[in-house]
């Protein structure tokens, strides 16, 4: 078998599968975006050209939720990387003893986003939220009502990210840990014998060797954070005053609740294009550069 044929054959199932179940629906989505069409009655549609796009691009609501989506994603991703990589390094440092640590650390992964959203709402919401009682008992805040996590419009978009961070830091930690374990120990050992200190070893050896794995983590988690829907929906439904509404929620609202299929499809298409742009950039920057 030629190399070319082998490659094609190995790619074929994935190509066919994604073609049918992702590309085709996306094509439908893009097609719909040029029409004024109601979700409940897709048969009667009026071609409107780029009108839906113009409306989406000039809508303040959509711009605001796009900015909010970005804030949310950067915030969540930053802490997930910080905690996740930190945890992976700690576990690697006590490698043989970290068995149970890792198992317990993986617990949030088992929780469905629906439950995690409800659980964090339960932890954060006023009057019954135990987090504030804990903080008050530790003297960090004066009384349990001091921070209104889910009703203060200035902080709510960050508050709802707590559930995301809790839920997915495990993913970052486990994948990073597997990456760390794949770094040949003799390289690190050699550097240690040469007198390189821990920080330099991390910066000049561990981090570069971890790069492919970290690139995957950043891209995958970044995309997931940008797409977040059910986790926030269940906590706040986008409120109060729409201050926790992210873009995919906006699309859902418009498409399903308001039945405005055309307009929602245009927003979704734009959203997808921007994501492709961001991820493409990340891909070439981190991944490609690494291959040199």
């Amino acid at each position: 078998m030629t190399e070319r044929r082998f490659v094609l054959l190995m790619l074929m199932p994935a190509m066919l599968f994604l073609g049918l179940l992702v590309v085709y629906p996306v094509a439908l989505l893009v097609y719909n975006s040029f029409f004024d069409v109601k979700l409940i009655d897709p048969a009667s549609r009026v071609f409107v050209g780029l009108a839906n796009y113009i409306e989406a691009l000039t809508s303040r609501r959509i711009l605001e939720s796009a900015v909010r989506t970005l804030k949310y994603s950067v915030f969540a991703l930053f802490f997930e990387l910080l905690f996740g990589l930190g945890a992976a390094l700690l576990f690697a440092a006590i490698a043989r003893h970290s068995h149970w640590h890792r198992t317990i650390f993986a617990l949030p992964l088992m929780i469905s986003p629906i439950v995690a959203g409800l659980l964090w709402r339960f932890l954060l919401v006023g009057n019954i939220g135990i987090l504030n009682y804990g903080l008050a008992a530790l003297g960090i805040i004066p009384d349990p009502g001091a921070i209104k996590w889910l009703s203060d419009t200035d902080i709510v978009i960050y508050s709802v990210a707590a559930a995301d961070i809790w839920l997915t830091t495990s993913f970052v930690a486990l994948v990073s840990y597997a990456g760390l374990m794949n770094i040949p120990r003799d390289v690190l050992e050699a550097a240690r014998i040469d007198g390189t200190n821990a920080i330099n070893r991390f910066w000049y050896i561990t981090l570069p060797m971890l790069r492919p794995v970290l690139a995957v983590v950043v891209v995958v988690r970044g995309i997931d954070a940008l797409k977040t829907f059910d986790l926030i929906w269940i906590q706040t439904q986008g409120g109060p005053r729409q201050q926790s509404e992210v873009l995919s929620m906006n699309i859902y609202q418009r498409m399903v609740r308001y039945g405005d299929l055309g307009q929602a499809s245009a927003t979704a298409t734009l959203f997808l294009l921007v994501m492709i742009g961001i991820a493409g950039l990340a891909y070439w920057k981190i991944w490609r550069a690494d291959r040199g």
């Binding site: 919401v125 006023g126 009057n127 009502g145 209104k148 889910l150 009703s151 409120g239 109060p240």
Partner: peptide, 21 residues
């Protein structure tokens, strides 16, 4: 009334009453 009104939905309101709050 509790000042976190924006967090209070049906379930929370009902619970405040059941809890004697």
């Amino acid at each position: 009334a509790p000042d976190n009104a924006l967090e209070i939905n049906w379930g929370e309101a009902q619970n405040l009453f059941y809890q004697g709050q």
